[in-house]
């Protein structure tokens, strides 16, 4: 199993009372899975995704990626894990405005010492996501759909084990949404596991399993 999550919980305090944003969640994902989690805003799905990316520390539970427990590790370890094992596509636009599209995609490659040609790889990924002609453009010159493609290419630069996508199609038109979802399917078919959280029901037609998150509780739903 690629990702093994057991009884993962995140508790927050709001005033005098506390509440569970994520409540005892179990989930297993294998290498060829394309999993969608749907839920309303505030249901806890983004918190759940960020715990997997080790951006939020869970209150309790366990999380293993490729058999390695990555919880409670030092920043250096979790950052490396995030950089090399996870491809994270954040909600909204997340490109760096000071860098060209090509440099945005290449950037995570240089965070740690690596063999290989980052430029060649980035150009190849831009080709795959359909925007090779925009390599030298700056983010402000791109449309919403193109920016999302840049984020996807960037998430794939270090050949991660799993792609985490937080609302990847929010604020995109239906045509662009379809393009992006088809791109995810291709990525999944090429051997990268995908875990996507969304509140858009149309997107659950893609992938092989769908979960619903409601008040922090995750339940499987038949497609």
């Amino acid at each position: 199993m690629l990702l093994e999550i057991k009884k993962l919980t995140k508790e927050y305090k709001r005033g005098a009372s506390s509440f569970k944003a994520v409540d005892n969640v179990d989930l297993s994902i294998s290498e060829d899975d394309f999993v969608s989690i749907i839920g309303r805003s505030g249901s806890g799905k983004s918190t759940f995704l960020n715990m997997i990316a080790s951006l939020i520390i869970p209150t309790s539970g366990s999380l293993e990626l490729e058999g390695q427990n990555i919880l409670s590790k030092k920043d250096k370890v979790t950052s490396f894990y995030r950089n090399s094992k996870i491809g994270y596509i954040p909600q909204g636009y997340s490109t760096l405005s000071n860098l060209t599209v090509l440099d945005n995609v290449r950037l995570p490659f240089f965070f740690y010492k690596r063999e290989g040609d980052a430029t060649e790889k980035a150009l190849d990924l831009l080709e795959k996501v359909g925007i090779p002609h925009l390599a030298q453009s700056y983010p402000k010159e791109l449309s919403g759909g193109e920016l999302r493609r840049v984020s996807i290419a960037r998430a794939l630069i270090n050949s991660p084990a799993i792609l985490l996508a937080d609302e990847p199609t929010s604020d995109l038109d239906s045509l662009t949404t379809t393009d992006i979802m088809q791109l995810f399917e291709q990525i999944s078919q090429n051997g990268t596991a995908i875990l996507m959280v969304t509140h858009e029901l149309d997107t659950v037609n893609y992938g092989n399993s769908v979960y619903v998150m409601n008040s922090g509780v995750l339940t499987k739903r038949n497609k």
Binding site: D75, S79, N83, S97, L107, F111, R154
Partner: peptide
């Protein structure tokens, strides 16, 4: 803020 958050998401350490 967002720029630094993105860098963290991409795997930059606090030190970086």
């Amino acid at each position: 803020k967002k720029e630094f958050a993105v860098l963290r998401i991409l795997g930059a350490t606090r030190k970086k």
